[in-house]
Design a protein around this nucleic acid. Structure first.
Lengths: 221, 221
DNA sequence: GTATATTTTAATGTATACATTATTCAACGG
DNA sequence: CCGTTGAATAATGTATACATTAAAATATAC
């Protein structure tokens, strides 16, 4: 019973966690050796993790200046939501075309139920987690592995910002309705409806969050 | 006058080249130490390059089995073209909305001219290069940096396959017409036309190439 | 006092040695 | 002869030492 997970993997997960939780704040710089000390390992696996996180757009290696945790500007948010809008709409369309059974759409339905339940308890964290689940499951059944990966990457990039605005936004009741209608369209095999409903859903989400950022003068997160 | 480019960067570029040129064939396995020897450097920078190439979807590190150059199946091609279709269509729409001047659209027009010229000389390699240029410039003026990066990644993933089918496909005269019409729509600020024309262009390209792969029984490239 | 040249410093980039571990191969028992 | 166990092997994963180089600090000239 030794630890069999490679250190580079531990570094990756732990750095991701610290970025998402804000322990490594947006815009902050960190030396490779600092991070290595904090994680209790040598620079080698840390560097490998940092390289991976760099290609996932979460940080940037700046020679001699340390690793910079990338802040996310309103413009970044706009870009990210645009990408998610296009690719998830495709996923919704393809999911509808695939003719899934109710059984196969169970996880999607369950995610919506969780959102409803969380909303009833006014548990926004749980709602956000279930929302993530819905979107992840949607792209999964869309059947395009590259879309899955890109969507995960984009979601990671906005995670901090999304958490910050979670308590500023209006109660997401409309959002839950949207999800149900998308699921219905998929279940009925109505591909174009699924696509356009989901597109609208994402476009509204984008407008809402960009608006929030401007109202609260949040220039980067 | 010493070489100031880091070895990891050299490794990255050189490995990319060897993958695209087929010197590292699809499906082949290679030890880190082999690659390091071939490139005349130690394993460290090679490993770093390999990690980057892995997150770009060009190869996979398989513990104890070496680095596998990822083959591209018809299904992969389908996924990649679907992603490009969505994101480039978005770029075309946004480019049209941006109201660029003729000056600013010059590079796009030049790419089309190059395609025509190459086609006149029946220089397919040059045509493909100019085609790449057109698509790269289109996403660039689309104004979404993430779309630029993702499109570049997807293009890299299909590069080998595209080169292989280049001499099997019909003369791409239709393709050049498509490009001109897309450029016209962008120049006229007709966003929806630009979007739908480009979508159609990509959908046809996808159908053509997938068809070619099946006809020639190309299961992976 | 300011600008420039030079030294020093500190961080990254790289090589190498070593630890770990999956795989291979051989020995052994059935 | 086949399957299982265990040692040998070989590849990756990691630590560390060192080389390189950009930035900072100091000295020097004007």
């Amino acid at each position: 019973m030794t630890k069999s997970t490679p250190n580079s993997q531990r570094a990756l997960q732990e750095l991701r966690r610290r970025i998402f939780e804000g322990e490594l704040p947006a815009g902050s710089d960190h030396l490779e050796s600092e991070l290595a000390d904090q994680l209790g390992m040598s620079r080698t696996p840390v560097r490998e993790a940092v390289l991976m996180l760099e290609s996932q757009g979460l940080l940037a290696m700046r020679p001699r200046k340390g690793v910079r945790i990338l802040p996310v500007s309103p413009e970044d948010m706009s870009e990210i939501y645009d990408v998610l809008t296009e690719l998830e709409s495709l996923a919704a369309e393809r999911a509808a075309e695939a003719g899934y059974t109710h059984e196969e759409l169970h996880d999607l339905a369950k995610a919506i139920d969780k959102m409803d339940a969380a909303l009833d308890r006014s548990d926004l964290e749980a709602w956000a987690a279930a929302d993530d689940l819905f979107h992840a499951e949607l792209v999964r059944i869309g059947g395009n592995r590259r879309v899955v990966m890109i969507a995960a990457m984009m979601t990671d990039q906005v995670r901090r910002a999304r958490n910050t605005t979670l308590y500023m936004r209006p109660r997401p009741t409309k959002s839950n309705d949207d999800h149900r209608r998308v699921l219905d369209a998929i279940a009925h095999g109505d591909a174009q409806t699924a696509r356009s409903l989901h597109r609208l859903h994402r476009e509204e989400a984008k407008a809402m969050i960009i608006d929030l950022l401007h109202k609260h003068r949040l220039r980067f997160l």
